[in-house]
């Protein structure tokens, strides 16, 4: 049993597609494999409670939450959410005998008992960790805020404002979302769901790793993948921009999302040009539209509401509404170039 656990841990480490923002701790010590005997607390993951501390779950084997526990697998997204330039690391937890299921190029199916864990760090310090728990009655999203000593993260149900400096050097009032705000983005037809792990935004190598270990039922069939964000200058600008919009906007701007009523749908697989915003008038944008008439005016990024809202940090105008206090120059550049080249 313990040996199996150790083997699992090693596989999990080997699967990690990309190093942590903070240097990943070595899995091998000089004497041989570190045998991690800590099991994730499945009872806590599956309970109906809101655990007060991140450590209650045992997702990590150290207080600083850098070493994933058994069944906890790090992953990355090809193109991520901006999040004010936070250094983020993401982990998937699959419970014993739990298996993910492929769902075409879309969101992986994850069994009850699974969890997604996401760290947010600035300047080498963890600020918050968000967890998504798949419980018997559905997914639950909970935010945890780290203490100054970096030894403990405590539940912040009502969210929190934290003064910090971004990698871009801006002092901001960073907003940890409250539990309901988690759902604003993580919502499909009113139910909480994961956003990130869609097959089209995951690397085939990572997915193959899952498959080879039997942690997913089959390799998801993906015809077109969102490009890696760091490759944005090398790929078609439309692909880079559409990937960015999928990761940053489509969780709300989809027919089942929180912005369903807008009719503006920005997912990677959307084909309807009007739904994508081309010559589409705003519906309930209010002053978010600024002086502009259309979400996208082909060839005219400076007349496009989409870019206008991306470039604002003012409440009521800025998009996304949550999770962005600063502008993302790289994201704006890609979307600007895409609209500029559009006919």
């Amino acid at each position: 049993m313990r040996l199996l656990a150790a083997a699992l841990l090693l596989s999990a480490a080997a699967l990690a597609a990309k190093p942590l923002a903070a240097p990943r701790p070595p899995v091998l010590s000089g004497a041989g494999p570190v045998i991690n005997t800590t099991l994730v607390n499945d009872a806590v993951v599956g309970s109906s409670e809101f655990p007060a501390r991140l450590s209650d779950y045992n997702f990590f084997t150290d207080a600083a939450a850098t070493r994933p526990g058994i069944g906890v697998i790090e992953y990355r997204l090809n193109t991520p959410l901006w999040s004010d330039g936070a250094d983020k690391s993401r982990f998937l937890y699959l419970p014993p005998k739990g298996q993910a299921t492929a769902n075409g190029d879309g969101l992986l199916g994850l069994p009850v008992g699974a969890a997604l864990i996401k760290h947010f760090a600035f300047g080498g310090k963890l600020v918050e960790t968000r967890v998504l728990l798949h419980r018997a009655d559905g997914w639950v999203a909970l935010p945890y805020v780290w203490n100054a000593e970096q030894t403990e993260a405590r539940l912040a149900l009502a969210g929190k404002r934290i003064e910090l400096t971004t990698p871009g050097g801006q002092a901001i009032s960073y907003a940890v979302p409250n539990k309901n705000q988690c759902k604003d983005c993580h919502s499909q037809d009113g139910a909480v769901i994961p956003v990130g792990p869609k097959a089209y935004n995951l690397s085939p190598e990572w997915l193959a790793g899952l498959k080879s270990r039997g942690w997913i039922d089959q390799m998801p069939k993906v015809s077109r993948r969102i490009p890696l964000w760091e490759d944005r200058a090398k790929v078609k600008v439309a692909d880079a921009a559409r990937g960015y919009l999928d990761a940053n906007c489509a969780h709300c701007h989809s027919p089942q999302g929180a912005a369903s009523n807008s009719g503006l749908y920005l997912g990677w697989t959307v084909k309807d040009r009007t739904a994508l915003g081309v010559k589409k008038r705003p519906v309930a944008a209010g002053r978010g539209a600024g002086p502009h008439e259309f979400a996208i005016v082909p060839g005219k990024p400076d007349q496009s509401i989409l870019l206008y809202r991306m470039a604002s940090t003012e409440g009521g105008v800025a998009m996304p509404e949550l999770g962005r206090e600063t502008r993302d120059p790289d994201g704006e550049a890609v979307v600007r170039a895409w609209i500029a080249g559009m006919r």
């Binding site: 404002r161 907003a175 919502s187 209010g286 978010g288 409440g315 009521g316 509404e321």
Partner: peptide, 27 residues
Amino acid sequence: KGAGEGLLVTSDEVTLRDFAVENTKGD
């Protein structure tokens, strides 16, 4: 400082009464 409205309700059968909301940035 943030969010698209003052109060957002996403559940059914809710009653809102006898209070005021002033000067929200969005709705």
